[in-house]
Each structure stands twice: as structure tokens, then as C-alpha cells.
Amino acid sequence: MTALLRVDNVDKIFSRRGKTAVEALRGINFSIEEGEFVSIVGASGSGKSTLLRIIDGLLEPTKGAVFVDDARVEKPGRDRAMVFQQDSLLPWKTVIENVAYGLTLAKSPWPQASKVAERFVAMTGLAGFESHYPHQLSGGMRQRVNVARALAVDPRILLLDEPFAALDAQTREIMQTELLKIWQESRKTVLLITHQIDEAVFLSDRVIIFSARPGTVREEIKIDLPRPRDLELKRTPEFVGLVDHIWKLIEAEVRLGVTASEG
């Protein structure tokens, strides 16, 4: 089986004139199979968001390349769609218009675009809120719109950039189970970036652990927990063991980050 997404020896160095260059990523190598759910966890500053932007085509790698189905990624394309953190919705557009945004940019006529959008509005539990504006929705609802917008363009790979980071703990747990349901329904390939270890373990088939500054792949762990999963799983010893193991791998770096930001 060939990989759907292949990240091949990617380095990223940010160099700005007059400032010291920052090495964000070094020698990143991994691949994702069709239909797989993979998460990347790492301390802040491990360059995981940068990597996601390189995969999406928003940033260019300094060295190496990303391939989707053996085609080199050079710019954003319809085979990938990104779910951003909070507040990337257009505030002057309604829910349905926001969900259809990717389609209208691709010049899809409104009757078709809105029909497709309606399907994903329903799938993400937003039915009844089609003509609301983002500022009238809660944080959790806004992220549903964000997910629906990405799904609406029918990408092969869904890229999620800490999509639930700004939500409160309870809403986050609900959104995790919703995301699993949507994933099972749509059978997309998913790459999720998160700093929440339990989120990564709960959702994924595989977790890739990044080390910080520069970001490198420290370890890949297969999550062999049975599916479908529900929140009960988070209390099983297997789950807790996996979370603990990953935490130990990145603990030192997280602590370093905490003292650095405090100092």
C-alpha cells in the first residue's frame, strides 16, 4: 500500500534580514495511509503548526518536500483542506456562506455550493443555524463551522491545526467525539496537530511525537485501542498508560517552555 501523504526530509529555517535564523523543523520524515487518523503532539515551539502549513502549501519547506499521491505539494490544493484555530471565519458571512466559502472560491455556482454546504452543516450538527453569523455562535459552534467548511470542498486529507485549543474542557471532549463520528462517516484521511496528549491518543490510529526547537520526529506510536471509541475509553488503564508514556517523552521540553515563557 502506498502512502497518501508523504513528508520527505523536510527542513524549515525562518531567516529574516537582521535577525538570527530560526530552525523550526529538521529532517521530518513520515507518511500517512489513506483513511488513517494521525496526530502530531509536541511542546509549543516544536514547529508542528509550521509543518501543517507546509503540508497545506501555505509555506515552502527550506529543504525536502511533501507529496500527496506522489505529486509534489507546491501550493494549496483541493486535495487538502485545513481547519484553523478559532476566528478564521468571515464575520460578515452567515454559517452557510462560510461553509460554502471554499466552493464559491472555486467558482462553484451558489445553488450547488449551498446544497453541498447544507449537507455538511447537517453533518456537523449546525442545522437550524444556517443564517446565523459567527459572532452569534459559541466557540464550539464556530469550530463546527470551521470543520464543515473544510469538509465541504471534499478534500482527501483534512488538516486540523489545534482545532479545539480555544474551547473549554467539556466542549472540547464533546467536539472530540463529534470529530470521530464525522471521521467515521466521511472516511477522510486526517492529520491533527495538538498539544493535548489525551486528545491525540483518543482520536488517532497513530501519534507522532515531536521534540522542540528544532522540531524533529522523536517517536511514532501506534494506538491499537478498539474502535468505535467513546469517552469511557479515557478511563481505561491502556489509555492512561499511553498518555503517560507520551507525556514522559515531552515532559522535559514542556517544562523548559514553561520556564522560558515565565522568565
Binding site: 497545506d56 502549501g57 501555505l58 501550493k75 494549496p76 490544493g77 483541493r78 483542506a81 485545513m82 484553523f84 484555530q85 476566528d87 478564521s88 471565519l89 468571515l90 466559502y101 471554499g102 472560491l105 472555486a106 470542498v153
Partner: peptide, 17 residues
């Protein structure tokens, strides 16, 4: 807003769009 522009770029928007 930078995130809005980034989202548009991610959906393959042209400069004019």
C-alpha cells in the same frame, strides 16, 4: 485579519479573490 487571509489562501483563493 491575518488568519482570515491565511484561510482564504488555504482554500486556493487568488489575489483578487
Amino acid at each position: 485579519d491575518k488568519p482570515l487571509i491565511e484561510a482564504a489562501r488555504s482554500f486556493n483563493a487568488t489575489k483578487l479573490q
